[in-house]
Design a binder for these strands. Structure first.
Lengths: 196, 196
DNA sequence: CTAGGGTGTTACCGGTCTGTAACTTCCAGC
DNA sequence: GCTGGAAGTTACAGACCGGTAACACCCTAG
């Protein structure tokens, strides 16, 4: 019961959702458009009526991923309104939970690993989306009253990014098990050096 | 002027070296055996006389990469004999230098991102080699007299791994610029909590 | 009821992929 | 100089790839 998601909805949405799922599981070059449309319960022609090429479908999937991640951030704000520090800790816990959820790393990072052509349209949106996420984390750290918000945000980013590839290479029992401990420790130690 | 390396040597070595280079630059699924053999100045039949399949060639390339990385560690020992702390700092500097050298991340991590079949032969050796590298870093930290050597080693691992994917997604001007600062800071702070 | 747009179906194009067969050529060691 | 093995050459098999053409269908809005 994998790769299903053929609920009745408009073909475009089904294709997008199925492609996201299959790209995530099998990689981008590991999935052909035929396989996507079949799993989405439709056909190739319909795909090409809604997306001008596989590359555009890839880009649209990445954007959809980022939108979903953005919604997660909004959920933190809803859960701890105004309490930025609590939101930061929620982010750490959520990230750690997703680490162990599936052994595949970040879709954007994986896409960047696969799509090596320097002018591939996906590379631009990956950079754009990653930078937006970084900006959001920096803002959260700063609003949580942390001095050197950029440094903390970048450190947390690298740790999480590293934990994701670690899970992908050595599994969930490797260095990534320490992620929460590292992240929490960092936040505490940065809290010490409060706003200047 | 790329992908050359057609010096006169035995075809097997040329194929291996060329494949390493091309896999690194263009990804594994982004390079066909025809392209490899042509760039290596030989032909497909010769490749298949030395490697039973592309998958075996991939595995052999990964092992060669790991051997090269191992040689780097030996160089640190040769440069700072017995001074494990100096070797650790040398490792940080070397890692940072390689970060900015080329925008492609770790070959093993990239391979893990591309080769999603859970029983792909490469996945096994990736895990094996990554675990060996981790063990070596833990040993280095411990021999440098650092308490919680595993935690420091794992943190440094995740930071470096994350920095490599960061370079690949947002470029060298992103969070990875802070890698040395983070790593050196960590080493110092772990030195504080000396061996228990 | 009808018109029309979204959808499904089938077949196809040209290209690329891994891997193999059959044969020729080269070259080093005897 | 001869021979045997390594290497090169050409052609091909069979599968898959992204993308398109032509046409039949269905279902809803008018």
């Amino acid at each position: 019961m994998t790769d299903g998601i053929v609920e009745r909805s408009r073909p475009r949405d089904r294709i997008l959702e199925t492609a996201r799922d299959m790209f995530h599981k099998h990689g981008i070059k590991g999935v052909g458009v035929d396989a996507i449309t079949e799993a989405a319960g439709t056909n190739k022609m319909t795909l090409y009526r809604h997306f001008e090429s596989k590359d555009e479908l890839i880009v649209e999937c990445l954007r959809a991923n980022a939108a979903k991640a953005g919604a997660m951030w909004d959920a933190f704000e809803a859960e701890f309104p105004g309490d930025k520090l609590a939101q930061l800790h929620a982010w750490v816990r959520k990230a750690a939970a997703m680490l162990n959820a599936d052994g595949r790393g970040c879709d954007m990072a994986n896409a960047a690993a696969e799509l090596t052509e320097p002018d591939h349209p996906a590379r631009l949106v990956i950079k754009e989306l990653k930078e937006a996420q970084r900006a959001r984390l920096v803002t959260l750290c700063r609003d949580a009253g942390i001095g050197q918000a950029e440094l903390l945000a970048d450190t947390l980013s690298l740790l999480l990014e590293g934990a994701r590839v670690s899970v992908q290479t050595v599994g969930t029992e490797g260095p990534s098990t320490q992620f929460v401990r590292m992240a929490e420790g960092l936040i505490v130690s940065f809290r010490g050096t409060a706003a200047v």
